[in-house]
Design a protein around this nucleic acid. Sequence first.
DNA 1: GCATGACTGTACCAATCGGTAAACAATTTA
DNA 2: TAAATTGTTTACCGATTGGTACAGTCATGC
Lengths: 188, 188
Amino acid sequence: MSRVVAERQDVIATLAEVFREHGYDGASLSLITEKTGLGKGSLYHFFPGGKEEMAEAVLGDIASWFQTHIFDRLNDSETPAAAIDDMFASVDGYFRQGRRLCLMGVIAASGAHDRFSVELNRYFADWRTALAEALGRQGMAEKERQALAEEVIGGIQGALILARSLDDPQAFSRILARLKARCQPSQN
Amino acid sequence: MSRVVAERQDVIATLAEVFREHGYDGASLSLITEKTGLGKGSLYHFFPGGKEEMAEAVLGDIASWFQTHIFDRLNDSETPAAAIDDMFASVDGYFRQGRRLCLMGVIAASGAHDRFSVELNRYFADWRTALAEALGRQGMAEKERQALAEEVIGGIQGALILARSLDDPQAFSRILARLKARCQPSQN
DNA sequence: GCATGACTGTACCAATCGGTAAACAATTTA
DNA sequence: TAAATTGTTTACCGATTGGTACAGTCATGC
């Protein structure tokens, strides 16, 4: 268990960075072998399905991270306002204050989109549902909470792209703060 | 003039679609020859710099379209509220009600980002400046208009990614409507 | 009617692509 | 310790990559 799983987990973390920085098509096997330090043989030992399986593993890893650290906390919390605050803090940390892109967004904006449409759909739909319900437990009306959740989640993606394009990570933080303010109970 | 320029312009439009749908790395020359109907010889005749020059031509074309149809109108208009409304209408049309991605965003989220960082930076910075100034002529305070312009432009990018990921173009329209409402003079 | 220059089709290039196979080393397990 | 499992190295595969070279086509202007 320990060794193997741990190493595979390490590989997945490195794979995630490679896909994030170079995109799916841009992440060649030679680049992957270089960054992971693993030869093709080892790579195909861990991921017999090749590059596609590597990306699936990474997306699955990300999905479960968000599930436990974001979605579940939004759902379980009895103090939705605090849970939503936690969400924004986690998001800020996860995306390194705007210096890191969202791999889900990267894939969605690439030609590999079709290959992973199920994962993409679930990730964004689950996030939207969890946030909308937390907003609801905060007293927000049905229509408005659906729309706001959508706006916030999209806003985060756009802020990441904008921050990278402007080469100004702080743009991410500024937008995030505004989105957060819009989720405050006092704003309803 | 006519023949050459016109044809090159047609090619650029097709190139834009290919890059949009497949990303920079995913747009192989064989795919480009197929979609444009032009052999490599013709392609390299029009774009001696190869794929990179093709992408530059497309980005330049997009930049000038936005310059004349969006940025200039925001700047020139003496009725900023109407100009901002026009912007949202143009954006909705340009992105085909959420069924079309923004190539600038696609490139920004890809490994080819570094190659085109100048173009990306200018596109988003110009848009932000133009929108912020229009908001200013509408009476909005300096700080708030900068922040709102940033939020709107990022929000559009994110809405496109979200709409594609959820396979729900209407998500784009819904978010766009909210962003537009936030720019209304009555909201200030 | 012929020279010119814009355009195109084809063959080709080295390099790299994703992926396979199998020999080999290292660890566990019995 | 022997066998079985797990992991790694290396050489290799055919296909495709972006790019080049160049002969040929075609309309235009002189």
